[in-house]
């Protein structure tokens, strides 16, 4: 083994040791804040792992969604939990108890820890058996994908698989996000965002970084056709910008009337579906694109999906229906 291989092996070993340790810490920690920070760390370690496995697409998605936005969502949920006085808050009094009360430390566990550990052990044993009995040198689907991927137009094999060969995967993922927004909006209205929390530093930071983030989102979308990137990564970039703007006290969706917000949320999946159904009408399969227009169609779908994903993520972060819905005025904050 040469020097570089040795360094890589040492790096991998560190990651392999850290991954379960951090995961355990996140699960076992009684302090919610500590658990969330460890969860964010776990996401970053996972992203590193994907990089080492030569899967930059997955690494980007994991770092942006699994670590960044999930972290922001968890932190805001924890902060909201701390602000909520159980049973008294008008907005949350109809919530089920488990949502407004901190988890009990040791009382009435629903599942015995032994049963849970047993299930996990069985799962681990099954996975281990599956990995051990994997055929060596299995070719997998990689050659087939490489053969099918068009050479010039859509050179990124991951994008090709996700949007052309298995487009319904991506469609369903956006569908899940849509369902999540519907669930969050049906739980209640968004909490009043903290006023004057952010000073000039954060606002200046958003002013500096915001334009760059928009640029990066556009780049990720465009590059997604022949390099790592795509609608999800780009949408998360926009979503993160939206979260930053909310934190800086400039709620990005506040000026949108309700119908525009809802249109932005559903336009991505709707266009996706419309194109798919049109293809059936033209005598093709669902979500099968004609070779000549594949790139243009996929870019169009991805651009709309990016907007939808960004708006959905910001709506999720807001944590409830936009306030304007009840008052009827257009000054609602989100």
């Amino acid at each position: 083994m040469d020097a570089l291989g040795l360094v890589n092996a040492a790096f991998d070993l560190v990651v392999i040791v850290l991954l379960p340790a951090v995961a355990l810490g996140a699960v076992m920690s009684a302090d919610l804040f500590k658990a969330i920070i460890l969860f964010i760390t776990l996401g970053l370690l996972l992203a590193l792992t994907w990089v080492r496995l030569a899967a930059p697409d997955v690494a980007l998605a994991e770092a942006a969604i699994g670590s960044g936005l999930m972290g922001a969502l968890l932190l805001s949920a924890r902060e909201r939990l701390a602000r909520t006085r159980p049973g008294r808050d008008r907005r949350t009094s109809h919530y089920p108890r488990w949502m407004t009360h901190p988890p009990p430390r040791r009382s009435h566990r629903a599942v015995s820890p032994w049963a849970a550990s047993g299930l996990v052990l069985i799962a681990v044993a099954g996975l281990t058996a599956a990995v051990v009995t994997l055929p060596h040198e299995a070719a997998g689907l990689a050659p087939e994908v490489a053969r099918q991927t068009p050479q010039r137009d859509l050179a990124n094999q991951v994008t090709f698989v996700l949007l052309d060969a298995r487009g319904y995967d991506t469609l369903l993922e956006i569908g899940v996000l849509l369902l999540a927004v519907a669930a969050v909006w049906s739980l209640g209205e968004a909490p009043e965002p903290p006023q004057n929390a952010a000073g000039p530093m954060l606002q200046g930071f958003v002013g500096t970084v915001g334009p760059i983030m928009v640029l990066v989102a556009g780049y990720l979308l465009w590059a997604g056709t022949d390099a790592p990137g795509g609608a999800f990564q780009a949408g998360v970039m926009l979503g993160a910008l939206g979260v930053l703007l909310s934190l800086a006290g400039r709620h990005p969706l506040a000026r949108l009337p309700g119908w525009a917000l809802r249109l932005a949320v559903v336009s991505g999946p709707m266009l996706f579906l419309a194109v798919g159904v049109t293809m059936i009408g033209l005598g093709r399969h669902f979500l099968e694109y004609p070779q000549a227009h594949a790139k243009a169609l996929i870019l169009l779908i991805e651009a709309t999906a990016m907007i939808s994903i960004g708006v959905i993520l910001v709506s999720l972060y807001a944590g409830g229906r936009p306030l304007s819905d009840e008052s009827g005025t257009r000054k609602g904050r989100l």
Binding site: M201, L202, F205, T208, V209, I212
Partner: peptide, 12 residues
């Protein structure tokens, strides 16, 4: 970018 981000977060 990292400098801008880290100085801002440390301030916050």
């Amino acid at each position: 970018l990292v400098m801008v981000a880290s100085s801002t977060t440390s301030f916050l």
